[in-house]
Design a protein around this nucleic acid. Sequence first.
DNA 1: CTGTTAGCGCTTTCAC
DNA 2: GTGAAAGCGCTAACAG
Lengths: 354, 354
Amino acid sequence: LRQASKQHAAVKPAAGRVTIAQVAREAGVSKTSVSRYLGGEFDALSEPLLEQIRSTIARLRYQPSQMARGLKRGRTRLIGMVVADILNPYSVAVLHGVEAACQKHGYTLMLCNTGNDVLREQQGLAALHSYSAEGLIFNTQGRNAQPIRDLEITGLPVVLLDRSLEGCDFDLVGLDNVKAAREATDHLLERGYDAIAMFIEPPLGVSARQQRVEGFRQSLAIHPAALGETIEVHLDQPGHLANLLQDFLKRHPAGRRIGLLAANGMVGLQLALALQSMRLRFPQDVGFLTFDEMAWSALVEPGISTLEQPTYELGFAALECLLRRINGETSTRTEILLPGRLIVRGSTDALAAD
Amino acid sequence: LRQASKQHAAVKPAAGRVTIAQVAREAGVSKTSVSRYLGGEFDALSEPLLEQIRSTIARLRYQPSQMARGLKRGRTRLIGMVVADILNPYSVAVLHGVEAACQKHGYTLMLCNTGNDVLREQQGLAALHSYSAEGLIFNTQGRNAQPIRDLEITGLPVVLLDRSLEGCDFDLVGLDNVKAAREATDHLLERGYDAIAMFIEPPLGVSARQQRVEGFRQSLAIHPAALGETIEVHLDQPGHLANLLQDFLKRHPAGRRIGLLAANGMVGLQLALALQSMRLRFPQDVGFLTFDEMAWSALVEPGISTLEQPTYELGFAALECLLRRINGETSTRTEILLPGRLIVRGSTDALAAD
DNA sequence: CTGTTAGCGCTTTCAC
DNA sequence: GTGAAAGCGCTAACAG
């Protein structure tokens, strides 16, 4: 069964691995011919050779080493992805799209989670680079991002996901945040909520958040009669959100219909939990709408209205955009902004509450 | 064959990459010395050389190529992970633990999602192997698993996650499913539910599922007065679960307290949605308990009781187990079975319903 | 059509 | 201490 590879040093080069040389020897041909076979240059090989090689490869279960191949050709067929927080369902949903696109195009994905840690972001970047990934998909945190900007000099293709980075020209794939936030806010206003709070994590340096605030403001600017307010929450501080919510409710006691807008799914969850602990119901007591569709959005009575992101498409588009750069496209910076989709459920059904 | 050579032109070997040769040249030393520096053999280098190399590396921002390094040494510091379904929160939670452990030990993770597709499982396996991953973490589907078994001959270290594979000796890391299922069932019985249905995806070939059924049966065997039944659901068939639920309820109309047990989080979600669409409330109409703690378990009134898995620890343990094999440990097959934790909420609070 | 040769970037004897 | 040289497994000229 398991080879008795005992010591640390026992992991010898190519332990047990079949090499192209072995195949060539056993097939009685040269390495070149085998290599040609692998490269699909079938019309450069005679019928008998072809058959010889084919059968030998099958018999030996030979699989070419991508490491050696990559070293020689410069193409590793490796894509690196850096994710700000793998516990965030949004990230995973996008990852799903990226992974699918990788498979479609014959690439393999290397994953790095930074857990919102700046240092780990840099380390991950270094690791991915050291494996000669052909391109990087980056869901950056936006802080201390100089190492990422430096990538531009190296010429390594990079696509930014969701969050752009000031001072560099990488392509960006993400939601059309301004429009989405406007749609979400409009919906609350249309439903008669005229005192709206947008709960959002600190927008500092995170472009997607800034744009959602911008869309929120734009919508409110058209409805001067309504009150609007953005509230910055720190999700890592337990109870912080609940306190802020309480504050907000105190400041708007009567005469106004209160609408709550969560700027992403994680905030939305915490907000829903805070409402629950305060025994506030939607839509009776407050209207409630959150960015990001979640598996359980419909489950919490009477259903939570959401602004869904096309996460899979986002991931897929990001990889295909990256591939274009890898294959030498040199056009100027592109921004692929996909539209969100409003899913209306009971949580914003103010009329029903009357 | 020609498309390959065409595309190839765009990505030259080592495009822009700093190599050890460059560092050596600019530092006025030999490649060997630089290599020694990289390998941490500082006492083999004189003070001036050391300093020369250090500063040159910093100035050039040199990063050694792991591909070349891996090719030469046989150690790639790459770990491959094959996940049955990345849309399953369980898989992601475990992935989180694996990734964390990888970072801790200086490994980089290559990810493959199979989407429950047998063919993609094989392709993923081949891909990971072709990159000379030092070991594999496998969340297999259990069907057509011969290619995985064959890995045993190659000597490539493999750790199975959650699901074991008959006829091979790979280590396994997972939940203590039998015990967990027993605990879950016991809890329902203790709470007075005496007609219990366990909803589970087809256990065929998936050891974890079989074991949960086993635990369920064990618990019921001790309580002969209670009725127990396992119900196989196909989550890919919309409405299937709801129909089965309806059937079950019809068969147990009165005199019995009905308890529903979902064998994993995805089944749990679907079951909760089915209950909702049928306007059945827990705990009033049925008791409800599901495997897998979810972010929103507490949010759905009056809270859903769950059997939580230590997902992060599972992932972490899997990688460390794999590392031991990579480093040459040759002991016989080990099984690391971590305990689950019962979290009791309102959904199984039958007394409150009285 | 086929094989020989020279590396890709790195580590590792083995001399000096 | 230090470096020259020989590969790791593979591909890409260049010959025949």
